[in-house]
């Protein structure tokens, strides 16, 4: 028996910790496990992935998981970015998603009818018990529920060794997820069928739509040139987006001044006067291609014109 899993989330959500906890708990239960996170140069908020393989016999073939049995998604906003992983799940496998959306909606978004969907509001559960939006404990609980291992008590022991603090709180969240996670079975499973795709072994460190070329074509001395970062849209990191109420804005430009991503810009907006004349008005707008949703602009706004709204 071997279970190959891929865990997808963002830097700072505890993906690595989650795989360590489940691996540790599996080891306590007598399994062999390898938790193998991929580290890039990215920072908090950027998509990251980790591999976790659990087996009854020792694992020596430490290689990237290409067609996982289970994919765990820490953030339903990542589904589009991480679709390659969902497509690679073996038929009859599991997709565990942290989401507050309805099962019907999720089914549509995931777009596969030959895998188990496991849905839970992990952030909600974590906020309730731990007081922090860390979905790793609840997702470990959902994993245990659908796979039948590791045992809940082992997860608790793993919390003690891996976290060393807030064990009771995290375990309460794990337990609630174990009890409440919703499992939607597949409509039909053709056991012999192959997954739609495989996870490429090169995608982890490729952040941006850059063409992979051979050594004679890379730039000499590894030099890079201005303008190249514009292909790297960091808008996908965002959980909330800023919106502005122009009627409250006094054009103090504090938001522009403090934006670390150069995502606050001035734009011309056309407004119609009472007698039909069109005026061009200078207003603040956001470049959602790059905005990471840090909310600094909303915090520094002296009139409360900028609000953060949760994105779909």
């Amino acid at each position: 028996m071997r279970v190959e899993t891929v865990w997808l989330g963002r830097g700072g959500q505890g993906i690595v910790t989650a795989t360590y906890i489940v691996a540790n708990a599996a080891v306590i239960d007598g399994f062999y496990a390898l938790a193998n996170p991929e580290f890039g140069a990215e920072r908090r908020g950027a998509p990251v992935k980790a591999f976790l393989t659990i087996d009854k016999s020792p694992i020596e073939d430490q290689e990237p998981v290409k067609t996982p049995d289970v994919v765990v998604i820490f953030d339903d906003k990542l589904i589009d970015t991480m679709r390659f992983a969902i497509d690679a799940v073996k038929p009859g496998g599991h997709v565990i998603v942290n989401t507050a959306k309805s099962p019907e909606e999720m089914k549509k978004i995931i777009g596969r009818n030959d895998v188990y969907l496991v849905l839970l509001d992990a952030v909600g559960i974590a906020l309730k018990h731990v007081g922090l939006p860390v979905p790793n404990g609840p997702l470990a609980g959902a994993f245990s529920k659908v796979m039948g291992f590791p045992r809940l008590e082992s997860i608790k022991t793993a919390f003690e060794t891996q976290l060393g603090k807030a064990v009771e709180e995290n375990f309460a969240a794990t337990k609630e997820a174990y009890e409440t996670a919703l499992v939607v079975p597949p409509e039909r499973v053709e056991q012999a069928a192959k997954p739609k795709g495989v996870i490429s072994t090169t995608s982890a460190f490729l952040t941006g739509p850059y063409e992979i070329v051979g050594w004679p074509e890379v730039s000499k001395a590894g030099a890079v040139f201005p303008g190249s970062s514009l292909f790297y849209a960091t808008g996908g990191w965002r959980l909330e987006k800023p919106v502005i109420d122009h009627s409250k804005c006094i054009m103090c430009r504090k938001c522009w001044m403090y934006c670390p991503d150069d995502a606050v810009v001035e734009a011309w907006k056309e407004v119609q006067g009472p007698r039909g004349r069109v005026f061009r008005m200078k207003v603040i707008d956001f470049d959602y291609q790059y905005c990471k949703g840090c909310a600094v602009c909303a915090d520094v706004c002296p009139t409360g014109a900028i609000k953060m709204v949760r994105e779909i």
Partner: peptide, 18 residues
């Protein structure tokens, strides 16, 4: 200092560099 960087959301290095 152009957008599209891997700094954490809200990192003030971006503000200083800009």
């Amino acid at each position: 200092f152009l957008p599209g960087h891997g700094l954490c959301a809200s990192c003030t290095i971006g503000v200083i560099a800009r």
